[in-house]
C-alpha cells in the first residue's frame, strides 16, 4: 500500500517541485520585472508601474507588427500544416511499396536542427542567385510556359512572411505526420472493411471513419501547433532576420531582441506576459471547443 502511494504521489510531487522551481518562480520573477525598468547590469533599475505595458500596447508599432506576424504564421502553419499532414498521413497509410522510403523523406526535415535547415533554405530562397527561382524559371521556360517571375522570397515585405511559413511547413510537417499516421494506423481495419462492403467510397471512409476516430490526435496536433507557433522564433531569425522593414518579426523574436540587444529586460518581460496571456486565452478557447466536440 505504501509503495502504491509512493508511486502515485511521486508524480504530483515531482511535477510540482520541478515546475515550481523552473517555471512558476521564474515566471513570477518575469511578472515582477515587467513593472520595472530593469537590466541586470544597470545601476538605475526603477519601478515604472504599467508603463511597459502601455508602451507595448499603445505606442510601439513593432509590437503590433509582431502580433500580426505571429498570428499570420500560426494561422498558416496550423491550418495548412494540419490539413497537409492529414492528407499525407492518410496517403502514406495506403501506400504499399516503398512506403518506408516515402516516410523517411517526410520525416527527414524533422530531424534537421532548425538552424542548419534554415541556413540551407536561406540559400535556396535567395531570389536572384538561389536554386528555387532559377530552377522554376528553367522549368517553366523549357516547358514553354510563361516564364516564372523572380519572387523576392526573403527580400520583399510581401513575401517574407509566406516564405517563413513555407519553411515552417517543411520543417514542422514531419512530426505531425508521425502523430497522425500513428492514429490512423490505430483505426481498426475491420471498420474500413465493413464500410467498403456497404459500398462506401474511399473518400467517404476518410471523412466518416478515419477523421472521427483520430479526433483526439487531431486536437492534439492543432492545440500543440498553436502553442508552438505562437512562440515561433528561429525560422524568422535565421531566414529573414525579421526583415525587410520588420515585416517578419515575431513576438518571441521581439522578446529576445528587447532583452539581449536593447538590455530592456522589463519591457521584454512585459511583452512575454502579453504573449503568455494571448496563448493562454487561445488555448482555453480551444480546450472548451474540444470539450464541446467530445460531448457530441
Amino acid at each position: 500500500m505504501t509503495s502504491k502511494n509512493a508511486f502515485i504521489y511521486g508524480a504530483p510531487i515531482l511535477a510540482g517541485a520541478f515546475f515550481l522551481i523552473w517555471y512558476v518562480l521564474p515566471i513570477g520573477w518575469v511578472l515582477w520585472v515587467s513593472f520595472w525598468d530593469y537590466s541586470p547590469i544597470s545601476p538605475n533599475n526603477a519601478p515604472v508601474g504599467l508603463e511597459n505595458y502601455r508602451e507595448a500596447l499603445f505606442q510601439d508599432h513593432v509590437f503590433w507588427a509582431a502580433v500580426k506576424n505571429t498570428a499570420y504564421f500560426t494561422f498558416g502553419n496550423v491550418v495548412l500544416g494540419t490539413i497537409m499532414a492529414l492528407l499525407i498521413a492518410n496517403g502514406l497509410s495506403r501506400l504499399g511499396t516503398l512506403r518506408r522510403l516515402a516516410q523517411t523523406a517526410y520525416f527527414m526535415p524533422t530531424l534537421f536542427s532548425i538552424v542548419a535547415a534554415a541556413v540551407v533554405w536561406e540559400e535556396i530562397f535567395q531570389p536572384r542567385f538561389g536554386i528555387l527561382n532559377n530552377g522554376l524559371y528553367y522549368l517553366t521556360d523549357s516547358l514553354g510556359l510563361p516564364p516564372f517571375p523572380e519572387i523576392g522570397w526573403t527580400t520583399t515585405t510581401d513575401w517574407s512572411m509566406p516564405t517563413v511559413i513555407l519553411f515552417g511547413l517543411w520543417k514542422f510537417l514531419g512530426i505531425r505526420i508521425i502523430i497522425l499516421l500513428a492514429a490512423i494506423e490505430a483505426v481498426p481495419r475491420d471498420l474500413y472493411e465493413a464500410a467498403s462492403i456497404d459500398g462506401v467510397t474511399k473518400r467517404q471512409q476518410f471523412f466518416h471513419v478515419t477523421i472521427p476516430l483520430i479526433k483526439p490526435a487531431l486536437w492534439f496536433v492543432v492545440i500543440a501547433g498553436i502553442i508552438n507557433s505562437f512562440q515561433v522564433f528561429e525560422p524568422m531569425y535565421v531566414i529573414t532576420d525579421g526583415g525587410p522593414l520588420r515585416s517578419s518579426v515575431s513576438m518571441v523574436m521581439l522578446v529576445a531582441e528587447t532583452a539581449f540587444e536593447r538590455q530592456r529586460f522589463g519591457y521584454s518581460a512585459a511583452i512575454s506576459i502579453l504573449l503568455f496571456g494571448m496563448i493562454l486565452a487561445l488555448t482555453a478557447v480551444l480546450f472548451w471547443l474540444r470539450g464541446r466536440s467530445e460531448e457530441r
Binding site: F19, Y23, I27, W29, F233, V255, F265, F276
Partner: peptide, 27 residues
Amino acid sequence: FRIPLLYLVIATTMIPLPVLVLPHFQI
C-alpha cells in the same frame, strides 16, 4: 490538486523560453 496541477503544467508550455534565461541563470 490533480486538475489545477495539470493545468499548471500545460500552461508552462506557453512561456517563451528566452525570458526564462535570466531567472534560470539566477537559480
